[in-house]
Amino acid sequence: MLRAEHLSFKIGGNLLLTDVSLTLLPGEFTMVLGPNGAGKSTLLKLLTGTEMPYQGQVWYDDQPLKSIPLPTLARQKAVLSQLLSLPFDLSVTDVVMMGRYPYFDLNPTRQDKQIADDCLEAVGMFSFKTRAFASLSGGEKQKVHLARVLAQLYRQPSDQSVKYLFLDEPISALDIHYQHQILKLVRNLASQNMVVFVIVHDINLALQYAQKVILIDQGSIYGIGHPDDVLTQSAIETVFQLTPYFMTHPETGRRVMIC
């Protein structure tokens, strides 16, 4: 379980996040939405320890995040940020192997290499394993970085610990086929005793895949809960300043938003 209480964050005199409290449970697929500049990525940084809050605290299970040793945290938590470029000339396999760094000292084992291959296969990039990372398209780079964080949290059969996966717009550069493929993959990961926190912009994808939605506006949580309860017409009008219309999908019965 991840728990945050009364998180606030400011740069200079500007408050970017104000009094945010939430609980994220393993097995629950949580999606985060909000307009540009609402505080979504800031919240992710506070929940992962990349930034320290001005006020408040974060716990992983019953342990304060700031007290968890970095080697331990590197085996529990993985983060995919929006930054896709790398300053080094690496192969695709080299990039994915970065996710295995917490598990070996100097050289990866045969098992580490197999895990990297398995994760590339899971995101549809195994055939690119020897390619130079810099030569890939934006969407291909996004899938390789996703394979990297999957390799970091790869679970051995004997490992029953809670894992924490944070993804900041992981499908923004993908075509519609791969958007659904990746979200199905991540939803399955959430069911495997994993806390999953995913920032997205597509309300319809949140309605289709999320089990919990966090709607953020102007640095505060506007709503949190089941997508149908949070992503209402009035909430979308207030937060995104547009009037949505909903219909029912004829096959799935889910709500679909049109504008």
Rank of each mutant, 00 (worst) to 15 (best):
M52F: 08
P53L: 12
Y54N: 08
Q55G: 12
Q55K: 13
Q55A: 14
G56Q: 03
Q57I: 10
V58E: 06
W59Y: 14
Y60P: 03
Y60A: 11
D62Q: 11
D62H: 12
D62R: 10
Q63G: 02
P64C: 09
L65P: 01
L65F: 13
K66L: 04
S67Q: 08
P69W: 09
L70D: 06
L70H: 15
L70S: 06
T72F: 05
L73W: 05
L73M: 12
L73A: 07
R75T: 10
Q76S: 11
A78L: 11
V79G: 12
V79K: 06
V79N: 07
L80T: 07
L80Y: 04
L83K: 15
L83N: 12
L83P: 01
S85H: 11
S85A: 12
L86D: 01
L86N: 08
P87H: 12
F88M: 05
F88R: 02
F88E: 06
F88D: 03
D89W: 11
D89G: 07
L90R: 08
S91M: 05
V92A: 09
T93K: 06
T93V: 07
T93G: 02
D94R: 03
V95D: 00
V96N: 03
V96H: 02
V96A: 03
M97E: 04
M98H: 10
G99H: 02
G99E: 02
R100F: 09
R100P: 07
R100L: 06
Y101Q: 11
Y101R: 09
Y101T: 14
P102T: 13
Y103C: 06
Y103F: 13
F104V: 05
F104C: 07
D105T: 14
L106P: 05
N107F: 13
P108H: 01
P108A: 14
P108W: 00
T109E: 05
R110K: 15
Q111C: 06
D112F: 03
K113Y: 14
K113G: 02
I115S: 02
A116E: 04
A116M: 08
D117E: 09
D118G: 03
D118A: 13
D118C: 09
D118I: 06
L120F: 00
L120H: 00
L120Y: 00
E121K: 14
A122I: 10
A122F: 05
A122E: 09
V123K: 00
V123Q: 00
V123D: 00
V123F: 01
M125Y: 08
M125S: 07
M125W: 04
